[in-house]
Amino acid sequence: MEKKRQIIIRPIMTEKMSRLEDTQRKFAFQVDSSINKIEIKKAIEKKFNVKVSNVHTMNIKGKSKSMTIRSGGRVIRTSGRRANWKKAIVTLQEGFKIDLYESEVAR
């Protein structure tokens, strides 16, 4: 049986988004990378009991990171990448609101 996927991973709470939430009813979430806009819309509407008018998505490339480790007198330089992820900005219909600070959000 296929494992149930978690569509909404976490809300993105930043200074910019909190401004957009108040002025344009836009809410940002990290979502599963393989999910499309329609599925996102359905998931948000079901989870928060709201009506979604628009969904924008964007794939964020994980940053490459490098670091230096000292191990047993040797210096090792290593590098890697952070995972790619998908951000969705959901615009709600007029009259709807999500209280991210009060509601239980999947993480």
Binding site: M13, T14, E15, S18, D99, Y101, E102
Partner: peptide, 15 residues
């Protein structure tokens, strides 16, 4: 993270 000092929304602080 995500906010400058003094710019965190009141409702987030209260939570």
């Amino acid at each position: 993270p995500g906010f400058r000092k003094g710019k965190v929304p009141k409702r987030m602080i209260l939570q």
